[in-house]
Simulated scan of single mutants.
Amino acid sequence: MSRSPARAPDDVRAELRSTFQWMTAGNERHGYADVTRWWRSPELLPRLGPALASLFAEERPTVVLGIASRGCLLGPLVAAHLGLGFVEVRKNRGPSTDNDAWLQTRTPPDYHDKQLDLGIRRDLVGSADRVLLVDDWVATGGQALGARALVEQADATWLGLAVLVDGLTEPAVRRRLGVRSLLHIREL
Results as ranks from 00 to 15, higher is better:
M23V: 15
L48G: 05
Y32L: 11
P46Q: 10
A25T: 05
E28N: 07
D10Y: 14
D11Y: 13
E15N: 05
E15G: 02
E43T: 10
G26L: 14
Q21E: 10
T19H: 08
P42L: 09
D10H: 15
N27R: 11
R29S: 02
Q21V: 04
S18A: 10
R37T: 05
T19I: 04
T24R: 15
G49Y: 09
E28R: 11
F20C: 02
W38D: 10
G49T: 05
V35N: 01
E28W: 11
R47D: 08
D10Q: 15
A25Y: 05
T36Q: 12
P46T: 10
L45C: 11
T36S: 15
T19W: 08
S18Y: 02
A14F: 06
E15P: 00
V12S: 02
R37L: 06
P42V: 04
N27M: 12
V12A: 07
D10G: 15
P42D: 06
V35H: 01
R13G: 01
A33W: 01
P42Y: 11
R13Q: 06
A25I: 05
R37S: 13
Y32A: 08
H30M: 03
H30N: 01
W39E: 04
P46K: 09
W39S: 06
R17T: 13
W22N: 06
G26M: 13
R47I: 04
A33F: 06
T24E: 14
T24D: 05
G49E: 08
E28K: 07
V35P: 00
S18F: 05
W22A: 03
A33L: 11
R29H: 05
R17G: 03
W39A: 07
R29E: 07
E43P: 00
A14T: 07
R37C: 03
G26V: 10
R37M: 06
G31K: 10
D11G: 03
L16M: 09
G49P: 05
Q21A: 12
S18T: 06
W38R: 08
R47F: 05
V35T: 06
A25V: 07
F20V: 00
T19C: 05
D11R: 08
R13Y: 06
L44T: 09
L48D: 01
L48S: 02
L48C: 11
Q21C: 03
D11N: 09
L44D: 07
M23Y: 04
S18Q: 11
L48V: 09
R29T: 04
G26F: 13
R17Q: 15
W22F: 13
E43C: 03
L45T: 15
D34H: 09
R40L: 13
H30P: 00
P42F: 04
G31Q: 08
L16R: 02
G49K: 00
D11H: 15
S41Y: 12
A14N: 13
R13K: 10
V12D: 04
A14S: 15
A33M: 13
E28L: 09
W39D: 02
R37G: 09
T24W: 01
D11F: 14
T36E: 01
Q21F: 13
P46D: 10
L48M: 12
V35E: 00
A33P: 01
T24L: 13
G31L: 04
G31A: 02
E15Y: 03
T24G: 01
N27P: 03
A14K: 10
W38L: 03
R29I: 00
D10I: 14
Y32H: 12
N27V: 12
R29Y: 01
W22D: 11
A14C: 02
T19Q: 14
R17E: 14
